[in-house]
Design a protein around this nucleic acid. Structure first.
Length: 421
RNA sequence: GGAAGAUUGGCCGAGUGGUUUAAGGCGACGGUUUGCUAAACCGUUGGGUUGAUUAUAUUGACCCCGUGAGUUCGAAUCUCACAUCUUCCGCCA
């Protein structure tokens, strides 16, 4: 949710942001109007309530013989109060509906426009050159007996898979490497719930445009999370954090579930786009003025992980129209995928400024001890999808795959995955 | 799945329809005293919305006692639903 003070003081900034995203600018003026209406309604209600309260004291103190008379007067007041209260509540609800529709104000420098308007910030690493015909991760997974897609489909349907043998161990190795790196950087590890209540899912903004992406369990009124960001953002909801002089950082590990409802026919081969995968997510709570510096750090840590996995990649500054509604800026790191001849997203890091925390009511105490809304940021440190890039980039002429040195320690020193026969 | 009990401020805890404007204690913070610390004494001590004024301050109104609805002129207090926790019984890993 945007800051209602900004709506009052600088509505143009919000209009400009909506325009950069290609979102509805008219919402801004509608919200301002509704805010004014709510204020008036609330004042009327409070004035009437004050009268009622004062009268109530008279009733309490009055001698018995005068009570009947005073109570009769109070009855009239009561109905007025109820009416005005209902009006004020309605005005507030109307305002909230519109406020929630306005997306976060994008930061200066974010490229305007939609998906294709991203800006490449840098390219790092050397793309591999093969003297043989490179295999994609599906055939590598099959020949090395580390990914079993056929049986995944048999058991659970399309977009499901088994990771097997060294494939399964490689994923866990990747997660552990990421968790160790995060721990060294001061992150607190958290294994998070993957089923959450509606208000948490709502609060993190995943029930907006992307609600079709989310698995829902009607029998229990719970949602399956598509990322541990949901639980991590909800972790401190409704709290006032004592000290944010340095950011509070969590590394959340969880399985993630996505319906992929809007992507029929897209990436149907392999494990690039699946219904279930694992992810290690970084999540930071910090002061709003520290958010951009924290964002840069998250990006740096992500780059370190890609370098440890010896993957060629590029960093892109995602365009305003392609940001989630909570994000004020987002950087994606895309790894080179040889058989696709292109880059594919491996990580994403968003600076949500105070937008997400305001909706979840997460605050901190500033220098004066006064509560203020915190900023939240998130970023991927490892996912199952990384296996695609690792397998394809490190494949050898003999059909084997070299394991990046940083991961070997987690695999009992195994240096390569050889063909099964 | 069944039964009983509980939920009040940072923490403990009183409060069973009207001077509750939520007692009291602990903790924390400030002050006095003190060579320093402690003790003692005095004071302060939540969140939100919204006004006024001489506007970094002062002061007022309203809301918040797990959540939501209801009864009532008036609800922390009564009713209903839900959530969470505790204990017990049953079933199961």
């Amino acid at each position: 949710m945007i800051d209602i003070n900004l709506l009052r003081e600088n509505p143009q900034a919000i209009r400009d942001s909506q325009a950069a995203r290609g979102a509805d600018e008219a919402l801004v003026d509608l919200a301002a109007k509704l805010a004014e209406q709510k204020k008036v309604a609330l004042q009327q209600f409070e004035a009437m309530r004050a009268k009622q309260n004062a009268h109530g004291k008279l009733v309490a103190q009055a001698p018995k013989e005068e009570k009947a008379e005073l109570v009769a007067q109070a009855q009239e007041m009561s109905s007025d109060v109820k009416k005005l209260e209902a009006e004020a509540n309605l005005a507030d609800q109307e305002l909230m509906v519109v406020l929630h529709k306005i997306e976060n104000v994008v930061l200066e420098g974010v490229p305007a426009g939609s998906e294709e308007n991203f800006v490449v910030i840098k390219e790092v690493g050397k793309k591999p050159e093969f003297s043989f015909e490179a295999k994609d991760h599906v055939s590598l997974g099959e020949s090395l007996d580390v990914i079993d897609i056929e049986r995944g489909a048999k058991v659970s349907g399309s977009r499901f898979y088994f990771l097997k043998g060294l494939g399964a161990r490689l994923e866990l190795a990747l997660m552990q490497l990421a968790l160790d790196q995060a721990s060294e950087a001061g992150f607190t590890a958290l294994i998070t719930p993957t089923l959450v209540k509606p208000e948490i899912m709502q609060g993190t903004g995943f029930l907006g445009e992307h609600s079709a992406e989310v698995y829902y369990l009607p029998a229990d009124d719970l949602y399956l999370t598509g990322t541990s960001e949901v639980a991590l953002a909800g972790y401190h909801s409704g709290e006032i954090l004592d000290d944010l002089t340095t950011p509070m950082r969590y590394a959340g590990w969880s399985t993630c579930y996505r319906r992929e409802a809007g992507s029929h026919g897209k990436d149907t081969r392999g494990i690039l786009r699946v219904h279930q995968f694992n992810k290690l997510e970084m999540f930071s709570y910090c002061k709003p003025e520290d958010a951009e510096a924290e964002h840069a750090k998250l990006l740096e840590w992500q780059e370190q992980m890609l370098q440890k996995c010896e993957l060629p990649y590029r960093v892109i500054d995602v365009a305003a129209g392609d940001l989630g509604s909570s994000a004020a800026r987002k950087y994606d790191i895309e790894a080179w995928v040889p058989t696709q001849g292109g880059y594919r997203e491996l990580t994403s890091t968003s600076n949500c400024t105070t937008y997400q925390a305001r909706r979840l009511n997460t605050r901190y105490r500033d220098q004066d001890g006064k509560p203020a809304v915190a900023a939240t940021l998130n970023g991927t440190l490892a996912t199952t999808r990384w296996l695609v890039a690792i397998l394809e980039n490190h494949q050898q002429a003999d059909g084997s795959v070299l394991i990046p040195a940083a991961l070997r320690g987690y695999l009992g020193g195994v240096e390569k995955i050889g063909p099964k026969h």
